[in-house]
C-alpha cells in the first residue's frame, strides 16, 4: 500500500502572509520580555548580596546592552499589551439574559486599566524611591 501523501509545511510558512508575520511578531515579544525578567532576577539577587553589589547592578543598567534591552523590551511590552487587550473581548464575553456588555466597552475598560496600571506604577515607584522609601 502506498504511503499517504503528507504535504510538508515549509519552516518559513509565516513569512509571506502579513497576518502570519504579525502573529509571529506578537509571539516574539516573549523573547525580550523573558530577557528583561532575567535582568530583574539578577537585580533581586544583587540586592540580596548587599549595597555594593546592588550599586554595581545599578551601574550596569546604564551599559549599552541594558539600555538596548530596555528599549526593545519596552516596545515589546507595549505591543504585547496592545495585542493582548485586543483579545480580551474574545475571551471575556458578558452576554446573559440580564446583562449584556459590548466587547468594545470591555476592551476599552481594560485598556484604560492598563494605562492607569503602568502610569500608576511609575508614579508610585517615583514617590517611593525619591523619598528614600518612606
Amino acid at each position: 500500500m502506498a504511503e499517504p501523501y503528507v504535504k510538508r509545511q515549509p519552516a518559513g510558512w509565516w513569512l509571506k502572509n502579513p497576518a502570519y508575520r504579525r502573529y509571529m511578531l506578537r509571539e516574539a515579544t516573549a523573547l525580550p520580555l523573558f530577557a528583561y525578567t532575567l535582568l530583574l532576577i539578577t537585580g533581586v539577587y544583587r540586592l540580596s548580596q548587599g549595597e555594593e553589589a546592588f550599586t554595581q547592578w545599578l551601574v550596569m543598567l546604564r551599559s549599552p546592552w541594558c539600555v538596548t534591552l530596555h528599549v526593545v523590551a519596552l516596545a515589546a511590552a507595549l505591543l504585547h499589551a496592545w495585542t493582548w487587550l485586543q483579545l480580551v473581548p474574545k475571551i471575556l464575553v458578558v452576554h446573559t439574559n440580564r446583562l449584556r456588555v459590548s466587547g468594545t466597552l470591555i476592551k476599552r475598560v481594560h485598556q484604560l486599566g492598563a494605562l492607569l496600571g503602568s502610569v500608576g506604577l511609575v508614579v508610585l515607584a517615583w514617590l517611593f524611591l525619591a523619598q528614600g522609601g518612606s
Binding site: L33, L74, H80, W84, A114, S118, L121
Partner: peptide, 10 residues
C-alpha cells in the same frame, strides 16, 4: 504584563 509591564520597564 499588559497592565504593569511597560511601567515596570520605565
Amino acid at each position: 504584563l499588559a497592565f504593569v509591564g511597560p511601567g515596570l520597564i520605565v
